[in-house]
Amino acid sequence: MLTIENLSVSYGSVQALRDVSLTVPPGRVTAVIGANGAGKSTLMRTLAGLVRPRSGTVHMNGEDITGMSPEDIVRRGVALVPEGRSTIPDLTVGENLRLGGLWRTSAQRNASESRVFALFPILAERRSMRADTLSGGERQQLAIGRALMCGPQALLLDEPSLGLAPLIVTQILELVERLARESGMAVLLVEQNAATALRVAKTGIVLNLGQIVMSGRAADIASDEQLRHAYLGY
């Protein structure tokens, strides 16, 4: 369980997040949606330790991880799949995967690796090829696989749909949903593509100008037309 309380982040004089509080429960997907610049990516980067919050706390399973370095946070079970190109093209697929969770015992890592290969069989096939030979969808699978190699209890997915075909997005997100359900992992999904995100998520949070304007059951948010018009633009 990832618990966020009164989190505020600012870049210089610009406040990117204001008093954000939410919990990400295990075993399901929680979607954070909102327009461009709503602070979604800032939230994710702050949770992963890439950005230091100005105030507020983040707890993982009761442990305060606020202000920790990314290296330490990932060791406490919070793994981020950052937006965009988050694989390393100069390394092979296998190396990209092995990079995740190098601190873990080899037994743990082997177990994670077989799970990832079971989840994304294409990665097993392409194992010894350079990551830049992969297609966009495969690369996103690799990025998620790398995060899973860290053995996370909370997985943060930042815009996995970016630049991918809708069908592939649906496939990936459904996989993630199943993963959360079966392994009891807490998944926080940031998406600009609200419809897709709300379809796989149990809970939804709408972020606007750095503030939470609504949170509730994903289905309710998806059906709230007024909200959709006001914040999601469709």
């Binding site: 990314p70 290296e71 060791r75 981020l80 950052p82 390393i88 990079l99 601190w103 790398r146």
Partner: peptide
Amino acid sequence: EVARLSGV
């Protein structure tokens, strides 16, 4: 960045 996120 990716290296740090992977725990390196």
